[in-house]
Design a binder for these strands. Structure first.
Lengths: 340, 340
DNA sequence: GGAGCTAATGTTATCGATAACCTAAGCTTA
DNA sequence: TAAGCTTAGGTTATCGATAACATTAGCTCC
């Protein structure tokens, strides 16, 4: 099964087989223009028999149109993103647009190359996560793009043509109030890679500011060189309670880290929520799988993707679109924080 | 910030600005041919100042070459895949190839459209997960592709030009032997979506066969309409032990489901491993985050991606490549199965 | 000193489609 | 019945690059 097969079939070959011109084949396959039923049949059959696959390079070059929508995300392993993407796809798919994904790995250099690569195919639109430090080259590429561009996951700092996402500042404030209402005052924050994920950093800063306004000092335990996953949550929590056994509430960067932290707290004999309250972020289904129902902030991820895709379609149609859509946030009370 | 910007800059404009022909610009930017340092400078600067971005549609169409590598995966939320992909990228990136990802959502229909869309851009290569039911159209498209194609994640059933992945049958046998060696005889399997994930199904069948050979009946609890995640593992385990409290070992489809199951077992008062042994599959970092260190089968995911990418590069260079690479599997003994 | 190189650049054809316009036949309709 | 419209299809130019070959000037070298 070699791959050095014959040259792919072109319109010309289909045309020859069907006994018509290339243009006629093109019209039949795109269902434009007026073609008799008889010809239509012959062309379809010829294309089918030859296994004709249109060449999008030629097609898009010529028509200056594309069915490709580029999506660039920091990490495909971040569970968070998959639902945003499925929201995007659920709206885009029925319209015939195809989503092509690029993964930047949180590296600005890689992200820049991805933007360059994707834009060089002149996509119909581009969606990218907000909250990343972007290189100057990337900004330049985006500034000169000739398609609509949408920022996902961030609504505090608007960018590109449309932003769909939560206010991370609001999220930070929600958690702060949640703790304050419950009379918790020795509060810690556990996170990782805050230098890369600026959205998470903004949540942290808002939490910090809200607590400060209430006269509370926030203790933070973070590291930049470990993944934002359960293992890291567990590791940092261990470090935290060893040095500060007095704390009575922890907010984690995300649910995965919170679960890691919880596992350590149980093991080390810190009852949750009696002794320490825990709040995560995201509302991933993960959160309800363990015996504890994690208190967390639920983010409507699918809706974010849907709104983004809808806005994209409208912009492609040259319709007017608002500047942003702010995703509603809900702090879901589980059993890792005591009732107020 | 509208998106209906001016027409993108073309080679011709750069050429005019630099006072040379298009061909010269093309050669400078691709670093081929011989061009004087002076001209090279002027062209580079002109391109820079105009913000020239090559049009890959035109470039690839003309040269019949591409820097794009297509990857089609069933689900980006499946943690498993992210590491395979990072292995792929670590090899491909330095060579200048760009990975474009498509997500099929386990739907053959969607997968077919993705294959069509990606192949229509004439990529340098295509990588796809094995173990999915593929539509006839998809097979046709793949048969007529004119680039190397590689199957990931499955090495039992070889397909395309190269296969990189574990033997899922071996995995099933490993688990069976693990249980048998420990004298466990009331064994259950918990999984989901086995109709879609044929690799998982093959593990299950091998487990079943190996146990049968030892005179053991395997009890299986599965469902097709729930995700292969922790919640489902928990739900099915609850159902399992309610109806069959006598079982003494469970193999889960993956680690996520195993963790969900574990949480229920703890809660329901089934000590692990004293009363019930548990084995997962994958060796995700998740496995070590909770108090229990899950016994599981470690799959070298990054290596799979690397081998696949290396094979792809070799095929692009027209070098000979073996038919497959079988990923070594290790059953990692945690503390959810008692020592033999 | 001219045949033969090499280096630096330009010309032309082509990749595989689509846009925009054109043509011829058949049909209305006043 | 001739102007005018439809229908079905074809022609030509173009999209933005690259491959392959052509050209020109300066140099080498016997």
């Amino acid at each position: 099964m070699g791959h050095e097969r014959r040259k792919p079939v072109t319109l010309l070959e289909v045309a020859a087989k069907a006994g018509v011109s290339r243009m006629t084949v093109s019209k039949v396959l795109r269902e434009v223009g007026s073609i008799s039923d008889d010809t239509r049949q012959r062309v379809r059959q010829a294309a089918q028999e030859l296994g004709y696959l249109p060449n999008s390079l030629a097609g898009s070059l010529s028509s200056r149109k594309s069915q490709m929508v580029a999506v660039i995300i920091p990490s495909i392993s971040d569970i968070v993103f998959s639902e945003v993407l499925s929201g995007v796809n659920s709206v885009l798919r029925p319209t015939g647009f195809q989503t092509f994904i690029g993964e930047s790995g949180f590296e600005p250099e890689t992200e820049t190359e991805l933007i360059r690569a994707m834009l060089s195919f002149r996509p119909a639109g581009i969606l990218m996560n907000g909250g990343m430090a972007r290189s100057a080259d990337a900004e330049g590429l985006l500034a000169r793009r000739n398609c609509p561009a949408i920022q996902l996951w961030d609504c505090d700092r608007r960018a590109l043509d449309f932003s769909a996402g939560p206010s991370h500042e609001e999220a930070g404030r929600l958690v702060a109030n949640h703790f304050i209402e419950r009379g918790l005052r020795r509060i810690a924050y556990v996170g990782a890679e805050l230098d890369k994920d600026l959205c998470a950093r903004r949540r942290y800063l808002a939490l910090n500011a809200s607590l400060a306004a209430a006269g509370i000092d926030l203790l933070s335990v973070t590291c930049e060189d470990r993944p934002r996953q359960a293992v890291t949550g567990r590791f940092l929590t261990e470090q935290l309670v060893r040095e500060h056994p007095e704390i009575d509430a922890i907010h984690f960067l995300n649910d995965a880290m919170a679960l890691g932290g919880l596992s350590y707290l149980h093991e080390a004999g810190f009852p949750v929520p009696e002794r320490i309250s825990v709040v995560g972020f995201n509302g991933t289904s993960l959160a309800n799988a363990v015996r504890t129902r994690l208190s967390t902030i639920d983010v409507p991820r699918t809706a974010i993707g849907e709104k983004a895709a809808q806005a994209l379609l409208q912009m492609i149609e040259d319709e007017d679109v608002p500047e942003f859509w702010q995703a509603p946030l809900v702090l879901v009370q589980g059993n890792t924080t005591a009732a107020a």
